[in-house]
Design a protein around this nucleic acid. Structure first.
Length: 712
DNA sequence: GAACATAAATTTTTT
DNA sequence: ATTTATGTTC
């Protein structure tokens, strides 16, 4: 039964699906059926007789790839055997592992996760004797941030620092030294970090012509999702895989670029037509996800952006309900109100069709407590990941030692559980094992009986069959007493996590694949959306997903936008796009919470807040405002008559860049202004009658007394 | 000299 | 809650 493309797709989508030859760039606005387009294109290719094994689908998460492949199979009515799908990182990992010797790892390599990388930074820093006793010395996380940012943006640390972390300049020389040491350490210990996966693949493709040709021949059709969030190396990899007249389809939305902090380069998507000669550009602008009132609001968010996006989404989905902005009295009552709202929404929607979104992982903690108390199940995306939990890493460290006795990080973790053994002793033991110093080993094992047990256990493990599940089972038993000792409070919960790990392991026969997958995308909870559980997610992790009802919390300054992003205009712009992504996740119902005060752990008290600039700048007619009354309920505030003006366009995108800048009458007298030194800026808040918070391009946000400003 | 205990400070986003 | 710096103990 042939697929009915005529009825299933709109014109633009159909064009994207049926243009199979040559490069294609699809600019897909939020909710414009991007996934649908990819899925139908997969199906179309196969229906045309393309061997599924000749298709490569690169996405942002493996979950996304899997979902798309599954949907394509459903449409086709038969399995897509051999299609490669996954993230850039997982594709790179697989390819590199097959060609390890070619990139200088004759004995294979170990993939590190973030924590591993940080620990090596610290190790290197300590070995170089840098920053001893300096309280303000950059932390290991900061060090690694600078190193990876420098790599991802392919600019020297100095440049990154100058632009985004000027306060760290005194440590520039140190950082360069640490960066060199870090790279050296990795090479010595056959370790590879996330960035290496991409750079090594790029290098491999560049240098190994036969392999390049082979891959180009194999992958005749390449599709890349979320192209706006790729960085320079990723673009090069795509280019190399595609070959001269490659059939590449890149899909993305410049307005949804939210990974610049990780080196993503929006320029990639803008340059696509240049880099891939003769590329066709197709725009998807009709939104099938959200009701028009939500789109009116999200269009306003984009209207305030410094870079004007050539977008004005429209929808045929009507609703007479406006999005709501709710002002709870504090973040505590916010949690309670959100629970109330969820209970209310539950009457209309399934729990897993309701999501609460926030800027940072920790912001959901009060809500998690409140939900647990009332007995509503939830599923959290973002924040701490499964494989990052201490107990999981503990167990995996034994597994890693079975695989690779040279894995220093694993030794450090495993030996840490032995009483009387600290960092220094670990270093000595590691050295002794390496050099075969049996005298020292005899001495030290005599001194620490548990160490002998550990070594015996490891030997035992090495001799049994190398199936992840079998090994893990034994390790779990060995680890059991340590677990109870280490986590007396919550070990049952952690134990359950370990059992889950065993389950995952059962589906693997290859150890390295198992470990790699776990580091690359391994949150088993993510695999399936729990039924009957409300979704809590960071905005980043919510990318590409949608829910009938969405509640965004903590929309106050310093939280959303994040405090760290308030300094630089560029970062604030990314926060705005993040806000855009958050709001466009909602299909029917959107609620934004602006607590009037938030708990401050430094003072132990609640501090008053300023509403997020993204809320303040919204014209009053795109939302309803609700205040929490002191009794705990909500009361609707009517907008002052002077604030209301004609309703925004419900029109089709005839005038896409329908000038918000010029046409927006400003209800709060916010707008643009001029300053003698900083030049023209956009007023984003007015905390006091004579004080303005102004965003000056190039200078960032300043709070300025009205007398010094010329209002425009 | 090294490990352990305690106090203090600090929290963006992710492959 | 987690990590780091410092002080105390072996």
């Amino acid at each position: 039964m042939p697929i009915d493309f005529e009825n299933e797709l709109n014109e633009a989508q159909r064009e994207a699906v049926q243009t199979t030859e040559g490069p294609v760039l699809v600019i897909a606005g939020a909710g414009s059926g991007k996934t649908r387009t990819i899925v139908y294109r997969l199906a179309h290719l196969v229906e045309q007789g393309v061997d599924p094994a000749q298709i490569l689908l690169l996405t942002f998460t493996r979950k996304a790839a899997q979902e798309m492949l599954n949907r394509a199979e459903t449409i086709l009515g038969r399995p897509l055997t051999g299609t490669s799908g996954g993230t850039f990182h997982s594709f790179a990992y697989a390819t590199l592992r097959r060609n390890a010797a070619d990139i200088g790892f004759e004995n294979g390599f170990t993939l590190m996760d973030r924590a591993d990388s940080e620990n090596i930074c610290k190790e290197v820093k300590d070995n170089l004797k840098l920053g001893k006793g300096d309280r303000s010395y950059p932390k290991k996380g900061t060090l690694l941030d600078m190193i990876t940012k420098s790599r991802n943006k392919e600019a020297p640390i100095e440049v990154i620092m100058e632009k985004e972390a000027y306060h760290l300049s005194p440590y520039l020389d140190d950082m360069n030294e640490i960066a060199t040491g870090y790279a050296h350490f990795k090479k010595q210990h056959a370790l590879v970090d996330y960035d290496d996966l991409l750079f090594l693949l790029d290098k491999l493709l560049e240098e190994n012509e036969p392999l390049r040709n082979q891959l180009q021949a194999r992958y005749r059709y390449i599709m890349v999702d979320e192209y706006q969030d790729t960085n320079l190396v990723q673009a090069r990899i795509v280019k190399q895989l595609a070959g001269k007249n490659g059939n590449v389809m890149a899909v993305g939305d410049d307005a949804q670029s939210i990974y610049a902090f990780r080196g993503a380069n929006v320029q990639n998507i803008l340059d696509f037509p240049k880099i891939f000669d003769g590329g066709k550009v197709i725009r998807l602008e009709q939104n099938y996800r959200s009701v028009q009132p939500i789109l009116d609001l999200t269009n306003e968010i984009l209207a305030g952006a410094a870079t004007k996006f050539d977008k004005n989404l429209y929808s045929d989905l009507k609703s007479d309900k406006l999005p709501e902005v709710v002002y709870p009295l504090s973040d505590q009552t916010q949690a309670r109100l959100v629970v109330d709202q969820i209970l209310e929404l539950k009457k209309k929607y399934l729990l897993h069709d309701i999501a609460v979104l926030f800027r940072a992982g920790y912001q959901s903690f009060p809500l998690e407590v409140a939900l647990t108390r009332i007995g509503i199940d939830y599923q959290k995306y973002g924040g701490i990941r499964f494989h990052e939990a201490a107990h999981v890493k503990d167990v995996l460290s034994y597994l890693r030692l079975v695989l690779n006795p040279h894995d220093l990080l694993a030794w450090q973790r495993a030996l840490d559980h032995i009483k009387g053994v600290g960092p220094k002793t670990v270093a000595k033991i590691y050295q002794a094992i390496h050099s075969g110093d049996e005298k020292y080993m005899a001495k030290i094992t005599k001194k620490h009986e548990p160490l002998r047990e550990l070594l015996n256990e490891l030997n035992g493990l090495r001799s049994i069959e190398r199936r992840p599940a079998a090994l893990l089972e034994r390790i779990s038993a060995f680890y059991q007493p340590i677990l109870i000792e280490k986590y007396p409070d919550d070990y049952p919960k952690r134990q359950a996590g370990l059992e889950q790990l065993n389950q995952i392991a059962a589906s693997y026969s290859d150890m390295e694949q198992f470990l790699g997958d776990l580091s690359l995308d391994g949150d088993p909870e993510d695999e399936k959306r729990k039924e009957n559980a409300v979704v809590l997610s960071t905005v980043h992790s919510a990318k590409g997903l949608e829910w009938s009802a969405v509640i965004i919390i903590d929309l106050v300054e310093d939280r959303f936008p994040s405090r760290k992003a308030m300094q630089r205009a560029e970062d604030l712009e990314e926060e705005r796009r993040l806000m855009y992504v958050a709001c466009t996740r909602a299909k029917e119902c959107l609620k934004m919470m602006v607590p009037s005060s938030v708990y401050n752990r430094a003072s132990g008290m609640s501090d008053p807040t300023l509403p997020s600039p993204f809320i303040l700048e919204l014209p009053n007619n795109v939302f309803d405002k609700l205040n929490e009354s002191y009794g705990g309920g909500l009361e609707k505030k009517r907008h002052a008559p002077s604030n209301s003006y004609t309703s925004p366009s419900y029109s089709k995108p005839s005038s896409t860049t329908q000038n918000h800048a010029a046409a927006k009458p400003d209800p709060k007298q916010l707008g643009f202004c001029k300053h003698k030194i900083f030049g023209k800026g956009k007023i984003i808040a007015r905390p006091e009658p004579n004080k303005y918070k102004v965003n000056f391009p190039g200078f960032g946000i300043k709070t300025i007394i009205g007398d010094y400003l010329e209002l425009l």
